[in-house]
Nucleic acid binder design. Structure first.
Lengths: 209, 209
DNA sequence: GCCCTTGTTGTACGATCGTTCAATAGTGTT
DNA sequence: AACACTATTGAACGATCGTACAACAAGGGC
C-alpha cells in the first residue's frame, strides 16, 4: 500500500484519470449500458452507474449527452471494421479466401450477437433525428463498404470479369450480410450461422463468370 | 347543422367515437408520431397531440403505453404484408411475375421511405426488452416469410428443381430485400430502387437451374 | 508540508415522462 | 325532457430525464 488509511476509510474515494482515458471508459460504458438496458440504457444516470462514476462527470468530458452517444457510435463502428480487418490478417492472400474469412468473422462472435445487433438498431433509430449520428455515419460507414468493395475488386482482378459491376455487387453483398445479421439476431433459431455463410458464398459464386 | 350553437361555442368540444374506431385512430397516430419525431414520438403526450385527443384518453383504451405500442407494431406489420399481398393481385399468375411484382412493391412507396424504415428501426430497438413487442413479432413476422416462401415454392413447382432448398432460399431473399431496404433508406443517394430490384431479380435468376 | 490544478462529486432545477382519477359532457334511450 | 352510460377531459402525482454548478479532493510540483 502506497498510502496507509484508517480501516474505516480504506482509500481515496475516487481515482483521477487522464481525460482521454476517462472518455474512453465512458464510451465503453455507454455501449455496455445499451446492451444491458436497450434504448433506456442511453441515459446519463444509467451510463454513470455502468461506469462507476458520478452523474455530473459525463458533462465534464462531453458537452452533451448526444455528443457522447455519437462518440459511442463512432467507436462501435470502428470496432466492427477493425475486427473484420483483423480477421483478414490470417487469411490467404487470394481474394476468395479473404472473402471467406470475412464472412466467417461476420457470422461469428462478437459480431453475431443479439446484444450487438440491438445496439446497432438503437443507433439506427436515432439516425434520422440526430445530426451528430448522421455525421458519424457518413464518416465511418464507408470504411465498411470500402473494405468489402476492395475485396470484390481483388476478386475481379484475379478471376476475370464479374457478371455485375463492382458497385452493385458491393451493395448487394452488403445488403445480404446485413439482412442475414438482422434475421439471425431477431430469431436465432431460424437458421445456423454457417448457413448464412453458405448463402454469402453462393452469392459470390454467382458473381464469378 | 344538426344542432345549433351560439357563435362563440360553435359545437361539441369533442366527439365521442366507438371504442374500436378510437383505438384505430390512436394506433395510426402512434405511427405518425413515430415518423415525425422518431423514438421521442413514442410518448403519451406526443401521440395524444397527434391524435387531437387529451392526455388521459390513451389509458382509457389501452391498459398501458407499451400495449399501444405493441398494437401499433402489429398494425404496421399487417399493413406491410397486406400491401404486398395487394400488389400481387394484379400480377400475372406465373411465380416469376409475382416475384417481380413483389420486388416492385417492396422498393416503391410507401414501403421504400426513410420515415417508414425509421419506424421499423425504432420498433426493432424495443424488441429485446419488450415482451409485448416480441409476442407481436412472433405472431406477425411469419406472415411475411410465408408470403415469400409461397412464391418461391410456386417457382420451384413451375420451373423445375431449384439449386437451393426452399428454406434457405427464402431466408436469403428476405435478407437481401431487408438489407437493401436498410441501405437505401440510410443513404438514398447510394443506388436507385430499380437497381435494388435488379439485384433481387438476379438472386432469383441464380436460383433457377 | 503546502499549493495549484482540475478531475470528480452530488445536489438542485426545470422539463417531461406514464399513469391515475374525479369531474365533465356527448349521445342514445326512455 | 330527464336519464343513464361512458367516452373524454385535464389536473395532479411521483419518477426520471439532461444539464448546471458550487464544493470537494486527488495527485503532482515545489
Amino acid at each position: 500500500m502506497k498510502r496507509a488509511r484508517k480501516a474505516r476509510n480504506p482509500g481515496p474515494r475516487f481515482e483521477r484519470k487522464l481525460a482521454d482515458e476517462r472518455r474512453q471508459a465512458l464510451i465503453e460504458a455507454t455501449i455496455e449500458s445499451l446492451k444491458r438496458h436497450g434504448h433506456e440504457g442511453l441515459s446519463i444516470r444509467r451510463i454513470s452507474a455502468e461506469a462507476n462514476v458520478s452523474i455530473g462527470l459525463i458533462n465534464h468530458h462531453f458537452p452533451t449527452k448526444d455528443a457522447l452517444v455519437a462518440e459511442a457510435y463512432r467507436h462501435f463502428n470502428n470496432e466492427l471494421v477493425g475486427g473484420l480487418r483483423h480477421a483478414l490478417i490470417g487469411a490467404l492472400p487470394a481474394a476468395r479466401e479473404r472473402l471467406r474469412a470475412f464472412f466467417q468473422a461476420s457470422f461469428s462472435p462478437p459480431n453475431l450477437d443479439g446484444d450487438v445487433l440491438a445496439v446497432w438498431v438503437v443507433f439506427w433509430g436515432l439516425y434520422r433525428h440526430s445530426p451528430d449520428i448522421q455525421r458519424v455515419q457518413s464518416e465511418t460507414y464507408h470504411g465498411y463498404v470500402d473494405l468489402l468493395r476492395g475485396m470484390l475488386a481483388d476478386l475481379e482482378r484475379e478471376s476475370g470479369k464479374l457478371r455485375f459491376n463492382l458497385r452493385l455487387a458491393a451493395i448487394g453483398l452488403t445488403a445480404l450480410i446485413d439482412g442475414l445479421w438482422l434475421e439471425w439476431c431477431l430469431d436465432p433459431d431460424n437458421f445456423e450461422p454457417k448457413e448464412a455463410i453458405a448463402l454469402c458464398e453462393a452469392w459470390v459464386d454467382s458473381l464469378e463468370s
